[in-house]
Design a protein around this nucleic acid. Structure first.
Length: 259
DNA sequence: ATGCCTCAGCTCCTGAGA
């Protein structure tokens, strides 16, 4: 089973690239973030024609998330139950026996800002809810655009970006607290080249200079951890004309433990 | 550099992203 996450920065603009990518990488599940379109504009017909089911939770201009899957998602939940939020950031469903949470974490803009406070509250609410979901669904994947780096290895310029947004201790505390629930970063289960990133700034030739961050993550539960066969960042779509600023991340989960 | 790029929208500038 292959699952992937991709912040497409407007599905309206990126739909042809998503369809091309799915044709070349027929994953079982693809979580999308930053749809930037309302539910009535979601291109379900195009995905159906490509052989995918979808559950989606859109929003005008900002945010918006979806789960594409070969088999339909069941028990779909939108956003975080019990957390009042006017932004569409989370979509959860059960696919092929795996509880999949696709999430677009708040950006936070700047430490100390109102948006940063919202990010902290959202992270607390998410953790509370992921804990509940894990108790009910031992086979669980939490993936999406986290907008948080784990540590310096995820940052192109750790000194220059020290304590800036995505790199603060407060944000990383919340990320470690998610791990402490019994989740593992799939990426770190494998060796990768230094400076492996999932996002590069559009400005100043960020991608060409590999000035990026690793902020898109796929966390797996303890029950799935021994089954993770690979985890790769696909930089190819970042080389497209009019690319998203994020690259897809793909994880492969085997039926049986290796060896 | 309150910059650089990209996207959506009450669109020819602004807010937000990261």
């Amino acid at each position: 089973m292959k699952l992937a996450t991709w912040n497409v920065n407007s599905l309206g603009v990126r739909l042809p690239q998503v369809l091309d990518w799915l044709a070349a990488h027929p994953v079982d599940v693809l979580a999308l973030q930053e749809l930037k379109l309302t539910d009535d504009k979601f291109p379900i017909d195009a995905f159906s024609a490509a052989g995918y089911c979808a559950a989606w939770f859109g929003q005008k201009t900002y945010n918006g998330v979806a789960l594409l899957s070969r088999t339909p998602a069941t028990d779909v939940v939108k956003n975080i139950p019990g957390f009042d939020d006017d932004m569409s950031r989370v979509i959860t469903g059960t696919i092929d026996g795996v509880r999949v949470i696709g999430a677009y974490f708040p950006n936070g803009q700047e430490p100390g800002s109102d948006k940063f406070e919202y990010k902290m509250e959202w992270l607390s609410a998410l953790r509370r809810w992921v804990k509940e979901e894990l108790a009910q669904h031992p086979r669980l994947v939490l993936m999406g655009d986290y907008n948080i780096t784990f540590d310096d290895a995820d940052v192109w310029d750790p000194e220059g970006l020290c304590d800036t947004i995505h790199c603060t201790e407060e944000e990383r505390y919340h990320l470690r607290a998610l791990i402490a629930l019994g989740l593992t970063d799939s990426h770190r289960l494998f060796a990768h080249p230094p400076k492996s990133f999932s996002w590069w700034d559009y400005r100043d030739f960020g991608f060409k200079r590999n000035r990026g961050l690793r902020i898109d993550h796929i966390l797996v539960s303890n029950a799935l951890k021994p089954l993770v066969a690979s985890c790769e960042i696909d930089k190819t779509p970042r080389k497209n004309e009019r690319p998203s600023d994020h690259a897809p991340v793909v994880v492969e989960i085997a039926d049986q433990p290796a060896g």
